[in-house]
């Protein structure tokens, strides 16, 4: 089997993504300082989700690599999600 081709990502792409990540960090800090009740948790985790998607896709090259890696990473995230869901079936209804 031959090795996969390597995609060279330009510096500017990385810097752009970094800027985006820093902005999102500031946004999540700012938003959570306002009292939004239960929405706070949702928003903070939503922003964390976007940030991690950016890191996975660009910094970790999932966007450019063989789709198998993305499949595995998403699979594991889903697995953790299902595990939390099933565990909560116990705690929510106890």
């Amino acid at each position: 089997m031959e090795n996969e081709k390597h995609h060279i990502v330009s510096y500017s792409t990385y810097l752009l993504i970094l800027a985006l990540l820093l902005v999102l960090t500031v946004v999540s800090v700012a938003v959570t300082q306002i009292n939004l009740g239960t929405l706070t948790v949702t928003i903070a985790l939503f922003i964390a989700g976007i940030k991690s998607a950016l890191v996975l896709a660009i910094f970790m090259h999932l966007k450019f690599d063989n789709k198998m890696y993305a499949f595995m990473a998403i699979g594991v995230v889903l697995l953790i999600g299902i595990m939390i869901f099933i565990t909560f079936l116990d705690y929510l209804y106890r």
């Binding site: 595990m83 099933i86 079936l89 929510l92 106890r94």
Partner: peptide, 21 residues
């Protein structure tokens, strides 16, 4: 097989919903 772990804990005091699942 990954999602059946709770059947070791049927008498531990889990919720009914978890038991059925």
């Amino acid at each position: 097989g990954y999602f059946v772990w709770g059947h070791h804990m049927f008498t531990s005091g889990m919720s009914g919903t978890a038991l059925y699942t």
